[in-house]
Amino acid sequence: MKRTTGEKIFNVCNIIFLLLFAFTTLYPFLYMLSISLSSAAEASSGGFHLYPKDVSLTAYKMVFKNDNLIIAYANTIFRTVAGTLLGLLVTCFYGYALAREETPHKRFFTTVLVFTMLFNGGKIPTYLVLKQYHLLDNRWVYILPMLISAYNVIVSRAFFMSIPNSLNEAAKIDGAGEFKIFFKIIVPLSKPIIMTIALFLAVAHWNTWYDSLMYITDNKKIVVQVLLQRIIQESDVTLITQGMINPDATEFTSSTVKAATVIVAILPILIFYPFIQKYFTKGMMIGAVKG
């Protein structure tokens, strides 16, 4: 392909701009990583902290010595995997059905959905309802309330709508049922959007901790973020002992431990993205099926 001078200039500018932007977005991560690997004194010396000057693993040791970390991680992984798979199924079913012309009461089902994006009952009524459903101190409280969200359904529907109807009709003539069409034809064609929704769901599940803090009291069922917050609060027993510091003052936890908890909490989910990136490569949809 021949390129004009204008295009070359554009390419260079584009690369420079994206590099600069990527650096600014990478910086908080580098900063936290560097603080978490520094000694306590180094961490409070101020400055830019792009890399740790003297590497110290003290903060990570502090975080990893907690026995409950494994079970908390297991809970987080459970909610992320189960929540994403179930959520994906429910979301795509709903989105696909709304994308189909023939679905009865489409307006009604869309309105019901969009309404929930804007109105909610508030914290206490939600708690009372979950209590009635016996979902308090129950791991399903992580999954069931997050099964469907208006945003994900509508974004997926937009994609399903772009799939030509002719494919359906051809399949129907061949005698395929709706579910067969969905799993055999629609799903393979919709990989980019399915992976996008999966990413949205997985990240939402991984990052949500409020439900665990509020609805779970059993320590065997809490998620990793809640456990890490506890570690921040209880990190320094030698200082709390004998009234050297006020036990209410979490501010005394060293900034290295705080940074280490941030890194430990987000690193696993960050790895997920590069894995699904391959589904975003151009030309996933093969020209022929576009009809």
Binding site: K65, N66, D67, N68, N219, R230, I231, E234, S235, D236, V237, I240, T241, Q242, G243, N246, P247, D248
Partner: peptide, 22 residues
């Protein structure tokens, strides 16, 4: 504190609290 109670979280999980000022 004797190990494992020298870790703040372990000590707290065992129901203890060494702050006599509070």
């Amino acid at each position: 504190f004797v190990s494992p109670y020298d870790d703040g979280t372990q000590l707290a999980n065992a129901g203890y609290d060494p702050s006599f000022n509070a």
